[in-house]
Amino acid sequence: MSAYLLHLAILGGIYVILAISLNLIIGYAGQVSLGHAAFFGIGAYVSALTSLHLNFPFPLAALSAILFSGGCGFLLGLPTLRLKEDYLAIVTLGFGVIVDLVFLNLEITGGPDGLAGIAPPRILGVSFRAPGMYLLLVLLAVILTLILTYRLVNSYHGRALRAIRDHEVTAQVMGINTPAYKVAIFTLAAALAGMAGSLYAHYITFINPESFGLHTSILALCMVVLGGMGSIAGAVVGALALTVLPEMLRQFKAYQDLIYGGLLVALLIWRPEGLLGKGKLSLKFISRE
């Protein structure tokens, strides 16, 4: 495999984890989130900072990233108990913007310059610096994520989440503790996004706030919608497609973004449920009945 393809595969794998985690919130629990890149960023920065300043080995740095992101997800999950649709969209959007500004303005995060010289992973003396090795590491993380989320959505917990998505009040009447489920799914999704962020930081070895802003949140949302909401395979396909597609469109130079946008619009017109999804993108908060 050429170095370029390896690079795409590694980034694709990282985005697969990010898209799957966002799909848990949007596609399964039916909640809106426009700030998911914040958790990706928190994971990346926590992992980078703990390894730069505290000399944490990679597994420990990644674990810190997962736990810290998960904790932030728990905190963001709390307002979701009282907010719905457009209000939730605004809160999550605001959260994403605030976290991005924090990265940009704190001294410890290096401000706009970001953090450089993040050590490539070394686990039990084995270095994962080589792209081929790094791909193995990412694949391992992807497989773990797939197993965990497949088991989750196919258990009765997954059914409870879909019940909340379809009819929250009815779900409560069926004995489903909807607040607990909503907070739990925000926590889990944030933790997974944090893991993706950690993998990103130690692969690129240089991070700055640009990678974790609104456009990344929107990109993750596009991956979920394109692949299909409420489908894990869909999130995988969506993430890979949106990693590879911009690269394929490079040859069209100036028209690259135009074609990219056009393809997305066309897909949403002719296949609103996404490539593999079952549910349509809910625009309830835009077009109120």
Binding site: Y156, R159, A160, A163, A171, G175
Partner: peptide
Amino acid sequence: ARTFQNIQLFSGMTVLENVLTGCHQ
């Protein structure tokens, strides 16, 4: 347990899954 005047099924699920939701608790 209760039902609703305007039926409130989980429309994204199958008939069986709807009933299984009742077993949640």
